[in-house]
Design a protein around this nucleic acid. Sequence first.
DNA 1: CATGCGTGGGC
DNA 2: TGCCCAAGCAT
Length: 338
Amino acid sequence: MLKPVFQSDPLEHRADFQNALVGWFEKNRRDYPWRRTHDPYAVLVSEVMLQQTQIATVLGRGFFLRFLEAFPDVTSLAAADDEKLLKAWEGLGYYRRARMLRETAREVISRHAGKFPEELDALLDLPGVGRYTAGALRAFAFGLPAVVVDGNVARVISRLLDFRGVIDDSSGLKFIWDTAGLLADEDRPRSYHAGLMELGQRICRPGVPDCLACPVGAYCKTRDPQLLPAKKPRVTVTEVDEHALWLMDSAGRVLMHCERGKRRQGLWKLPTRTAEEVSGLSMVSESRYSITRYKVTLRVYTGGTAAEGDTWVAGDELLQLAMPSPFRRVVETLVGEI
DNA sequence: CATGCGTGGGC
DNA sequence: TGCCCAAGCAT
């Protein structure tokens, strides 16, 4: 690992560190659509979309601008129905985020007279807004002092300070957040925090970083960045099978099932069945996908019967429904084979 | 504190 | 290819 020599502790030379970072950012910053606005509503939409979701996903498929066209302000989002809301979120995953975003729009109207609060505690009270998102709103929407720690920032700080402990237990998180607070530039929150994240995204990458291009290499203590950050061991992956039906009636309608639970309400799938219920039916599709700690084999069969809660959907409405991606892929394939 | 919640980029 | 993991949050 070729890397600049450590010269100064960033905590002891905070202003120099901040200047180096902000100077680099001002020259090299990427032009993202959410950086062209300070509207707290638009900033919140971007931050929620970007939770655990890569920029390329949000940007490349146009989610951000499309969502703002559909729901340009808190009033329109507060009034959104499930169908339109989930359709705008389809493909992004973590669908609960969309519902909480709408709930936040409603609370901004009912509890804050339609104007986003600027105090940290008030922001943290909003549904779906945790300490990262609250800090991001403080810095990027309001230009106020903040502490902003995402996965990028945690990695950068662990390397800068050569923090070898795991960063995802309570003591590791405390170290990262405390250090982030000590390093933060209170006069230039926008450039500093966006710069620290963009540094982590582009230079101080996971795995082998591009240390020779790093603007703050002189403030970085670690000698082997590729070993950091340390994390707790991952949970083991479990293989599971999922069985579903592909059933069409004489009118060309397809049997579907709308999720009723609190978490995934409004998302549509093919009706799922137990292994016993599909025994003897002929399989028309087999696919695999990963979800959290599960590797799922999804098999779809023709035959079977409708059950309580299943819904017949007209063929021309089928692809309008919001579905989880694995089911959307299967449905699009099977529709194409008709 | 552990777990559930999606998806796709990149190596 | 299989695996890591990404601008987290709620429970």
